[in-house]
């Protein structure tokens, strides 16, 4: 019984670790396989610079989305499991 309670206690954190692991895969795939190989918007030096800026910006957005997803998962966990209970529980 005690052992089961301990296992259940770890379960949401295991889910959080798995979600983070999957987000690393998805995030890195989108950045390196979709954003980085994007073709130049238009030919020439300016086009090349603009394309690189867009790639960096999109990668930045991806990183932000990853952190945001982590933040939401953390908040969900904290509010559902930590702050919803009283001191006496």
């Amino acid at each position: 019984m005690g052992c089961t309670a301990l296992s259940l206690r770890t379960f949401p954190l295991l889910v959080l670790i798995t979600a983070t692991w999957l987000l690393i895969f998805v995030g890195s795939y989108v950045i390196f396989k979709i954003i980085v190989p994007l073709p130049e918007i238009y030919p020439g030096f300016l086009g090349q610079i603009l394309t690189e800026i867009i790639k960096v910006a999109l990668s930045g957005v991806m990183t932000f989305l990853w952190l945001y997803a982590m933040w939401k998962l953390r908040n969900f966990y904290v509010h559902r499991r930590l702050l919803s209970r009283s001191e006496d529980e």
Partner: peptide, 12 residues
């Protein structure tokens, strides 16, 4: 502060 230990203790 939210920490791993605090989260592990969330259930008691």
């Amino acid at each position: 502060p939210v920490t791993l230990v605090r989260m592990l203790l969330a259930d008691g």
